[in-house]
């Protein structure tokens, strides 16, 4: 009984601590903030239901991320796919417009859009490694693919993203009136 209660408390604490990153991962998976809301909520309820499965309090964050991804793939993805495609046309750039000046915001929005336009497998890998800081092997375990797959997805994503900074330069030049 006491073990059960403590694992429930641990899961509740983990939800508090990691809700932002689960939401962010949900956004990256689905491409829409309302679906990210739903994904977070469903993930947390599912995690609480399964708190008795928790055998170690280490890595409850990656456990939550795995649950989130599984709900996305198995339950929400097919329903939401049209919406996700629409995102590449109208990205939710206002989500990132929090910087101190216009140029910073434009650059941030550009990075945001480019990441969100990546193919789904590259996008989730970029989020887990670049944004959430998981190692290649941790990410490989979470996504259930070989580590080499993680590295080649990142290589492909880097190729698509590395023009962002150069584009930023070009935009700056255009804005300055040349």
């Amino acid at each position: 009984m006491s073990n059960e209660t403590s694992s429930e408390q641990a899961v509740r604490a983990a939800i508090q601590i990691h809700s932002k990153r689960v939401w962010r991962f949900g956004l990256a998976l689905s491409g829409a903030s309302d679906i990210a809301d739903d994904l977070l909520q469903a993930t947390c309820l599912r995690a609480l239901e399964r708190h008795h499965q928790v055998t170690s309090y280490e890595r409850l964050d990656s456990w939550l991320m795995t649950i989130c991804r599984s709900i996305w793939l198995n339950e929400l993805r097919s329903r939401s796919v049209r919406k996700a495609q629409a995102l590449s046309v109208t990205p939710e750039a206002e989500l990132v417009a929090t910087g101190p000046d216009v140029e910073t915001n434009i650059f941030a929005a550009e990075v945001f859009n480019r990441v969100m336009e990546l193919p789904e497998a590259q996008r989730e890998t970029v989020m887990l490694v670049f944004v959430e800081g998981y190692s290649y092997r941790e990410t490989a375990a979470m996504l259930d693919v070989p580590i080499g797959t993680i590295m080649s997805r990142l290589s492909n994503a880097r190729q698509k993203l590395k023009t962002v900074l150069q584009h930023d330069e070009a935009d700056t030049v255009r804005r300055s009136g040349k």
Partner: peptide, 22 residues
């Protein structure tokens, strides 16, 4: 690229999202 992407996305969402738990 990692720090560039990290910086942009770590600001998202700007506020802690709401979760309703039993």
């Amino acid at each position: 690229l990692a720090p560039v992407v990290h910086r942009v996305f770590s600001a998202v969402p700007s506020e802690a999202p709401k979760v309703e738990l039993p």
